[in-house]
Design a binder for these strands. Structure first.
Length: 202
DNA sequence: AGCGGGATAGTCT
DNA sequence: GACTATCCCGCTG
């Protein structure tokens, strides 16, 4: 059985042990899976943003600011950094080494399995692209919340598996970080070129 | 295009 | 304990 593409299983720690900007691109096309009592829902990652804490004014961990919230980013890579933004929960993947607080924000996914569940969680919204084309939307659709803070992404119930290989990757400035000095112009947002589920510019 | 929701963490006094 | 900023969304006009 060599058709590993068909096996949905967590990527190993090794996958997360690459520089943050490379990981942000490697994550594109991967399958994000969340298993809950209600059922399993998953989707392909199509948009990410890199946050390089020590040098990145836009990051919560800028200048190595270490608090209860940012603590998980100082640990090993491959863990979930969840935080709340107004009414929404946002999901980041911790990257880089221990004591190097960097991460990748998952900004959009393309629904793959458990679509009925996602639709219900999104209040029955009809337009499928509106279920997951934004960082706060996809966490709602997958049922991801703050209780997954610090979860190890190489194991259920929340994990990332191999998906498809994007034919082309686009890069550009990040979203929603206007007050971040020169950091707002860094092209650290990555997405699958011409993909309909990429989030909208605001 | 604007604005208000309603949740948390961080920073003050 | 209060005030304020935040890696946002959906509704109104």
């Amino acid at each position: 059985m060599t058709r590993s593409l068909l096996a949905i299983e967590p990527l190993p720690l090794l996958f997360y042990q690459q520089p943050t900007l490379e990981l942000a691109q490697s994550l594109l096309g991967c399958l994000l899976v969340h298993e809950t009592a209600e059922g399993t829902a998953s989707g392909f990652i199509v948009e990410t943003e890199a946050y390089k804490g020590p040098f990145d004014r836009a990051a919560h961990s800028f200048n190595n600011r270490r608090t209860k919230r940012t603590e998980v980013m100082f640990g090993p890579p491959g863990h979930a950094y969840t935080h709340t933004m107004h009414t929404h929960c946002l999901l980041n993947v911790v990257s880089s080494d221990i004591d190097c607080p960097e991460g990748v924000l998952i900004r959009a996914i393309e629904p793959f399995s458990g679509k009925n569940l996602m639709k219900n969680r999104r209040r029955g919204m009809e337009n499928e692209t509106n279920w997951t084309n934004g960082p706060g939307k996809l966490t709602k659709a997958l049922g991801v919340s703050m209780d997954l803070y610090g979860h190890d992404l190489t194991s259920p119930p929340l994990y990332i598996a191999r998906g498809f290989t994007p034919s082309e990757i686009s890069a550009g400035p990040r979203v929603g970080i206007d007050n971040s000095g020169e950091a707002k112009d860094y092209p650290w947002r990555f997405w699958v070129a011409n993909h309909p589920f990429v989030s909208k510019f605001r």
